[in-house]
Design a protein around this nucleic acid. Structure first.
Lengths: 270, 270
DNA sequence: TCCTTAAGTGTATTTGATACATTTTAAATG
DNA sequence: CATTTAAAATGTATCAAATACACTTAAGGA
C-alpha cells in the first residue's frame, strides 16, 4: 500500500487559503488552509518554514520631576551589545500579544494595572540582523512616582528624559517616534494624564505634563478653563504646600465621569 | 570528544534577550538572543516552538455608484466554508508585511499602485480555530471605476455595500469595524478621497464619498467652501454632462499641493 | 511688617463652524 | 421657439470655540 500523497496549489492569496486534496481524489473540503495531511502523523502544519518569532517591544512612558521619560535597558548581548534598547520579549504560543506585552512589563516592574496599547507591527526583513523577527510595539503609561517598583531587572533598566534618550538598537528609534505621536494624539482625545500622574496632583503638574507631551507652552488660564469645562476633575480640600508659599490645590480624576466621557468619545484642543 | 553543550536562562523578558554560553565557559558574548549553538549544525533558532504563522488580511474599500463598498471572498474551505471573509494570505519569510499585503492585493486585482496602510495586529489564541495564526490587518483604498481588474480570483470575490455586508469569519468583522473607524479619521486628516475617486470627479461625487465615509449628510455650500479653502483641487474646463442638464464641472486633485499639505499635517472638520 | 513667589481667576477678540436661499445653465418638452 | 425642469453654482450672517492677555491672592521667609 503506497503512502498517501497530497497536492497543493501554490498561490493562495485570494482568500487566505489554497486547495488541498489527495492526488486524484479532489480537494479535501474539510481541510484547513495551510495544513498538510500525512497518513502517519495526521494533520500537521504546512509552510512551517514561513513561521516566525513574534516579539513585543514596549515603549514605556513615565512622568517624573516635570519631565516625560522612557524606560530603556542596556543590551548585554551581541549584536549591538552595550547599546540601549526597548524592553521586550517574545510572544509564547499559548498567549496573545496583549498578554505577552503585559507579561513582559510585569516581569520588569512587578505591576499589572498599567495602561497599554498596541502601536504598530514592524517586520522589515533585516530589522534584526541576528534572525528574522517581527516585532509588535506596545506603548505603556506609568506613574513613576507611585510605582517605585523593585524588579530585579531594574539593575539594567533606566529612565531617560525623552529629549535626551540615547540612540537605540534596530528600529527602536522609529518605534519611539511613533509612540510619541500616538501619545500626543491620545492626549487630545482623552485625558490620558490619568495614567501618568499620581492619584493627587496639582493643576501645574497636569499642565506641565501636557506641555511635555505636546512639546509646546500652554497658557495657564486657558488650560485650566478648558480642563475644568471637561468636568472630569475633582478639587480636593487638600493643598500641596511644597510647591508654593500659597500652596496649590490637589485634584483627582473623577473616574466615573472620565469613563463616561471616553465612551461618548470627545476631543479637545490645546 | 563530548558534544558541545549550551545553557540558557529561561526568563528573557527584560531586554528581549537571554544569556547564552557554553557550559563552563561563560556566555558567548557575540551570540544572538534566542539562538542556540549546535556543534554540527552551527547556529540555529531557539524557541522555534513559539514561532507562528503571520497572516495579512486586507480590508479593501471601494467607492462605486455613490456607495462605499468592501471586497470580500467566499471561503471555499473548512472551517467556515461558504462564509465570507476578507482577502488574505500568509507572509513569506523573505518579505515584510507591507510586501505581503501588496502581493496579496496584487495577485487578486493585478494592481500595484494602491493606497495601503497597516491597521492592527490580531492575535487571540483561538481566533482561527484551525491553527494558531496571527493576522496583521491592512486597509486599502481603490477606485472601483478606474480599476476594472480582471484577476482570475475575482470569480470568488465580490463587492458589498458596507451597510449590507455579510457576517465574516473569525475576527474579520472586528477588523472591518476598525478599518471603518480609521478611514473616518483619515478622511478628516487628509483628503483621502484622492484614492477612492477616479482621476476626474465632480464636487457632488466628492461630497457623496465623504457623506458615505462619515455617515452623515453634509451641507453642499459648506462642503465646497471648506474643500476649496484647502486648495488642493483643480477645476477643469470639462464638464460631466451626464449628471445634470447644466452639467457639473470636473475636478482633479493637485497632487503636488496635496502632498505638501499631507506633509505639513493638517486637519479639517466636516 | 514687608517682600517674594507661584497660584488663582475672567473677559475681550479672533477665528473657524454652521445655517441658510436664490440664481444659473442647458437639455427636454410641448 | 418658448417653457419647463433638474441639478449645479454661489455668499453671508450667526454662533461657538480658541486664543490672547494682566492683576489679585495667599502664606512663608526675611
Amino acid at each position: 500500500m503506497g503512502s498517501l500523497q497530497i497536492f497543493l496549489r501554490e498561490s493562495a492569496d485570494a482568500g487566505s487559503f489554497c486547495y488541498i486534496g489527495r492526488k486524484g481524489h479532489g480537494r479535501l473540503p474539510w481541510c484547513h488552509p495551510y495544513l498538510v495531511y500525512d497518513h502517519r502523523m495526521g494533520l500537521k502544519y504546512y509552510k512551517s518554514e514561513d513561521k516566525v518569532l513574534l516579539a513585543v517591544d514596549c515603549i514605556i512612558f513615565g512622568f517624573d520631576n516635570g519631565e516625560l521619560k522612557i524606560l530603556l535597558v542596556r543590551r548585554n548581548m551581541e549584536p549591538e551589545m552595550g547599546k540601549w534598547s526597548l524592553i521586550g520579549g517574545f510572544m509564547k504560543k499559548a498567549e496573545d500579544l496583549d498578554q505577552a506585552a503585559t507579561r513582559v512589563l510585569q516581569n520588569l516592574t512587578g505591576l499589572g494595572d498599567i495602561y497599554m496599547e498596541q502601536l504598530y507591527t514592524y517586520s522589515k526583513v533585516d530589522r534584526d540582523p541576528g534572525q528574522r523577527t517581527i516585532s509588535v510595539a506596545y506603548f505603556a503609561l506609568i506613574d513613576v512616582a507611585s510605582h517605585q517598583f523593585e524588579g530585579v531587572q531594574l539593575e539594567t533598566a533606566r529612565w531617560f528624559p525623552l529629549s535626551d534618550a540615547p540612540d537605540l538598537i534596530f528600529d527602536h528609534n522609529k518605534m519611539v517616534a511613533k509612540a510619541v505621536a500616538r501619545l500626543r494624539r491620545r492626549a487630545l482625545t482623552m485625558p490620558i494624564g490619568f495614567e501618568l500622574l499620581p492619584d493627587k496632583f496639582t493643576m501645574r503638574q497636569l499642565q506641565t505634563l501636557y506641555e511635555c507631551i505636546l512639546d509646546k507652552e500652554l497658557d495657564k488660564r486657558n488650560f485650566i478653563n478648558k480642563f475644568k469645562s471637561l468636568d472630569v476633575l475633582i478639587r480636593l480640600d487638600e493643598k500641596d504646600m511644597t510647591v508654593a508659599r500659597k500652596g496649590a490645590y490637589l485634584y483627582t480624576f473623577d473616574k466615573d465621569k472620565y469613563d463616561r466621557k471616553v465612551e461618548e468619545g470627545f476631543s479637545f484642543k490645546l
